[in-house]
Design a protein around this nucleic acid. Structure first.
Lengths: 355, 355
DNA sequence: CTGAAAGCGCTTACAG
DNA sequence: CTGAAAGCGCTTACAG
């Protein structure tokens, strides 16, 4: 019963939508004049006479004319669309909505800026990145783009920078190709503050536990940790979380005489549970500070000491960076760090006298 | 320090991206031929010779050419962009992510279909609807559009139908202007099933509690309720939830001798608490069935009897409807009802012998 | 099988 | 102050 139409699904639309030409005909002016009247940009606006302008406006009213954004875009105008490219699905199925707050912030800001958000979902499945496929060009439907996702591609970044495409990353990113615009979390300062807090509690043997990747967000935390330890004249000790069992990790910390640890958010939960399993107390036997709220919400009942990632603000700021660049503000800060929220919870406590 | 550039922020891009003309020059053919080679549509593809075709393909490789979607669109091609217009913010700040699952389903499906999602956020703030402003025209950046949101505008629907724009609503919608494509929840069947469940538990005095709006989703539930009651030869009794206090509502139900109630999801929680406050038990003194999971997650600990709204599937199906229409399948079902998940929880129980 | 040409609906120099 | 014209990068009849 399926009839394949010959029009191959092109937009039909009973009556063709009015164009500038239609308006011009009705107003008795040239199409150029209509365009001029509409391009509200001060200089151009003033170029057409009061009376003619009104005639055009009336004709617009009558015809119900609205500009075709596609044509505007092709002719060199703007689409008022900002793309959002994510290196992972934006809406994950699992409970922890890591990306959700980013988008939340972006949506808010998009409304404020009067732009639409184009979610590039079609490129995601392959995860080959943008440069590989037809991706990078596809972004250009939009005026600019916000990129998102942990596993970004260095090639893409380099290409984007080289092309001077107006974009911004959510989270700090680096490339040898040049300066990457981003709205990142101030992990370095946040981590330093967390360590200082542990120092104030009397701890001296404070470990850092993190991944072994060279990811920017990991690096920033490590830098903050080292900075605070160095300032206190203490020896930084870093434990790779690797794939090892949380119990083994715990044993290693204890064996090294650590009394406190600043731990990446994706293992801190398991570490705490391993401690409890061994009959230890937190923070009695070991103080634990969490470096950011994890992607997957877990141990929500635990009152973690540590910091929170300002996801909404990061999303909003990334959009603002793109918008500023589109507005021609080249001198504006294109690399923005947003402070994290510090939380003085109950997983870190004073150094036990026995220790 | 802010230097306003004269280029007014237009995409700069160090080197202009290659166009079909560039490819044609390199391959020594006409621009038309390049277009023909690329427009893979069987018929057209076959029109160009094997050897020429390969030469073009090689030139494309060399130049790194990728089609400009904006130009394609203007020339009558496709953008592979499907819009998503919501009548409320997509990402609400409050805890209950009502729209989140819809988008989740859409994103999945968009990946599968190879289309991108354009979130029309810029039009949302005014909430004037599409028709009022420049909205409806703006949708046309996309090939088609999915609409979303409780408070949709009848004028928009009528206009969209009239224009034969390929769209679909998430949730059933009606307009005198014609048939509205939608992916809705089968509220009628689900409500009927819930009522039948209450009947099986021995209840005879079963009330329906709902809003007084004429919203399609409310109507569908009411129809299902009436259908089931009529089939059992019982008198349907509907209580408007209005703005009244949940306590008053409860008293009214009790005064009318109701032993069970099928209740709209946004009051059922308050109703239950009102019952508990008065020292009553649920389901001992009153059986409660919830007609859908609410927008705002609350009483998550309660094991509600009732049904769940298949939000993800609705989002995905709405996108599929649009895609089918774009593909030219005019005969396909454009009005789809998706079954709700029935939950046999513990807020409804057998009719107490005393009653 | 291939190409010259028109056209999609705009913007923007460039002339009057 | 206004308009004729070119051009954005494609697709699609229409001729050869």
């Amino acid at each position: 019963m399926t009839t394949t139409r010959h029009e191959s699904g092109r937009r039909s639309g009973s009556s063709r939508r009015p164009t500038q030409a239609d308006v011009a005909r009705l107003a008795g002016v040239s199409q150029t004049t209509v365009s001029l009247v509409l391009s509200g940009s001060g200089a151009a606006q003033r170029r057409v006479g009061e009376e003619v302008s009104e005639r055009v406006l009336r004709a617009i009213e009558l015809t119900g004319y609205v500009a075709n954004p596609v044509a505007q875009s092709l002719a060199g105008g703007r689409t008022s669309i900002i793309g959002v490219y994510t290196y992972e699905p934006v809406f994950p199925h699992d409970a922890g909505n890591f990306y959700y707050p980013f988008l939340e912030g972006m949506e808010d800001e998009a409304q404020r800026l009067g732009v639409d958000l184009l979610l590039f979902t079609s490129m995601a499945p392959s995860h080959r990145g943008l440069t590989g496929g037809s991706g990078i060009r596809r972004l250009r439907v939009a005026d600019g783009c916000v990129l998102l996702g942990r596993h970004s591609s260095p090639d893409d970044l380099a290409e984007l920078v080289r092309q001077e495409f107006p974009f911004a990353f959510v989270g700090r990113r680096e490339t040898p190709a040049g300066e990457v615009p981003f709205a990142g979390a101030a992990y370095q300062d946040a981590t330093a503050s967390v360590v200082e807090h542990l120092l104030e509690l009397g701890h001296r043997r404070i470990a850092l536990v993190n991944e072994y990747t060279g990811h920017e967000s990991v690096e920033d935390r490590a830098r903050g940790y080292r900075r605070a330890m160095a300032a206190a004249g203490l020896q930084p000790v870093t434990f790779d979380q690797g794939d090892r069992d949380a119990g083994d990790l715990l044993d290693a910390l204890r064996a090294s005489g650590m009394t406190a640890a600043a731990v990446s958010s994706d293992v801190v939960g398991r570490l705490r549970r391993a401690a409890l399993d061994r009959g230890l107390t937190v923070p009695g036997d070991l103080s634990l500070a969490r470096l950011g709220d994890p992607e997957i919400r877990e141990d929500a009942d635990v009152d973690w000491t540590g910091f929170l990632i300002p996801r909404m603000q990061m999303g909003a700021e990334a959009l603002r960076i793109v918008a500023r660049r589109l507005a021609g503000d080249e001198d504006t800060d294109a690399q923005v760090f947003i402070p994290c929220t510090l939380v003085d919870g109950s997983t870190a406590g004073p150094l036990a006298p026995s220790a």
